[in-house]
Design a binder for these strands. Sequence first.
DNA 1: GGCCAGCGTCGAAGCGCTTCGACGATCCCC
DNA 2: GGGGATCGTCGAAGCGCTTCGACGCTGGCC
Lengths: 361, 361
Amino acid sequence: MPAGPDDPTPPADGTAEPTAKSPDLVTIADVARHAGVALSTVSYVLSGKRAISATTRNRVLTSIRLLGYHPNAGARALASRRANVIALVLPLRSGMQVPVLMQFAMAVVTTARQFDHDVLLVTADEGPAGLRRIAASAMVDGILLMDVEMHDLRVPLLRELARPSVLIGFPADSTGLTCIDLDFHRAGEVCVAHLAGLGHRRIALLGAPAAVYDRDTGFAHRTRAGVLAAAERHGITAVALPCPEGAAAVRTALVDLLARQPDLTGLVVQNEAAVGDVLATLPTLGRRVPQDVSVVAICPDQFAEQASPRLTSVPVPAEEVGRQAVSLLMRKLVDATVPEATMLDPHLTVRDSTTAAPPLP
Amino acid sequence: MPAGPDDPTPPADGTAEPTAKSPDLVTIADVARHAGVALSTVSYVLSGKRAISATTRNRVLTSIRLLGYHPNAGARALASRRANVIALVLPLRSGMQVPVLMQFAMAVVTTARQFDHDVLLVTADEGPAGLRRIAASAMVDGILLMDVEMHDLRVPLLRELARPSVLIGFPADSTGLTCIDLDFHRAGEVCVAHLAGLGHRRIALLGAPAAVYDRDTGFAHRTRAGVLAAAERHGITAVALPCPEGAAAVRTALVDLLARQPDLTGLVVQNEAAVGDVLATLPTLGRRVPQDVSVVAICPDQFAEQASPRLTSVPVPAEEVGRQAVSLLMRKLVDATVPEATMLDPHLTVRDSTTAAPPLP
DNA sequence: GGCCAGCGTCGAAGCGCTTCGACGATCCCC
DNA sequence: GGGGATCGTCGAAGCGCTTCGACGCTGGCC
């Protein structure tokens, strides 16, 4: 038991038996009494909002430790009008983008804790009403919204909500909002530039499943736009197709694609759930990777490393986005002004799945 | 004027149209005044803890709607000693089991909302101290703990914590605790029984990555025990190996396995992240699935359906576990007694990856 | 030596809600 | 027709904390 995990200083006192069963029953009043100071003094020790002499502070801190005091969150929220909790709104549908989502969520929780905040998990299926409830009940101080669509119903609500929020992803109109994301337009361009630099002249983008485009999800559209723009600029031809998930569906999609573009030599894949199957299927269609077809993926590094061959990729920096999103939100909570738009630069890592274009037949 | 962002103007009574934007400023007192009843009456309308005449109730409800009233969560928690929030403790490490985790988390949130509770997301990296903090601060009414290890430090803490909890997974000693999980021992047995029934005499289990066994994670050990026990009972030989993730690592593992067991015809795979690669690699090692080797997976249905060939599998019923875990916790919150152990029955779905054993050479 | 500044501490007033006991009105039954 | 049982409503007392104004001290300065 003395293996206390992050207890600043465990029971300093030989005999003390503060472990007592009594759970949340120790209040600030108990601490004050035990330390022989006023209740408000304990509060000021905890918040640091007024100067307290070192002597008093130590006495209070000792009592706190001895009694195992933890401030009651509800009372604190009520009195201070700060819950020290932020909401993280995730899309309900599981399946798509899951590992990235998870990485992101974990980064959010970890970072929030560093700011002494907790995270309330909210699913998108409650829609705008859910946001309103969470905000109006003063349950959270701020809101982090993921998987924002271009024409998201929740966006106008957020604007009027009078609670700070940060969006992951960009809606069509982001004025007055704080948004952050990877710069997917540039990510698309970077992939194409890499392929073009290797001499590829006919390429394709295999993107998210069709449903994601239909839902008007920003990142998918932006990547496609980036790919097509860069292709035009480099004077190479590119087609962009959605890409389903599941080995069989991927095969069908590839067969289709190769029928349309038999002399295709470069592929950009933005679908982490499908990229493994793409790699496994291409050889069975007579296309070795990278000798016949070079593949660039937009996916988490972890996937790219584990694939075979290891994938040249532009990683989605989920952790970085999570961290920065929380930081932005925290700055807004203490009402610093923050930039409206933060676009993270894409970085392409060259691995084994791309090489110089084969000589023209 | 009603556009005032956080104008403390209370409904001036009479003619005032308090619909205003003012966010969390409408309190139960405003509602009471607007409806012309006592504050406590509004509270009783909301909680239903005392009879209220239909007339009064409707008047109050109308006022609530008109004013856009939402109870302040902090005040409610303070007064009622119930936060209406449960904690969901997830393992920090992303990567492993991610889609199952996500499915599970979503089911938890959705179910909790049906019970009018919200979910606080906690990562395991704060360890026991984090649990203690969450519980002692009365921030949550109950705790859901995932990814329990056999000898989990948090388990003894939970026992003494005086806050209801439900564990997903079984620690070595689960007395006094409420636990729920798929019955992995039987899941292992069911897989073996299926293969044995098809005439397979030499099989193997490819399990979780070695780290998971080293961490003493219950489900991995239990499945292995179930597989080995059933194999013995059926008089067939079985070996159990951990299975790494990533296409290249999977290939190595398979090559090893086939070197050790060249006449192997049945495979149980309990590693959703690797099963795709297993299927893709076996043919390249001269083993067609299912003609030469039958494969049964323990993985989410979604994976099994999308694989090629479609996998005979025992699904991990993540949603069901999530739902039931929340239900158990809710029952404990109103202090009903609940069963200590809930083991969900495994169900094997036959698809295209298993078939009768090839004739002996 | 007396005065004015902090400094450190205290007491009390809420924050918005739940809940308990009280108290008129009804209603029913004998 | 009167007495006791509801029924519906109200007022007030907290829940545990933050924060504001007040106040006694100490110390530097003229």
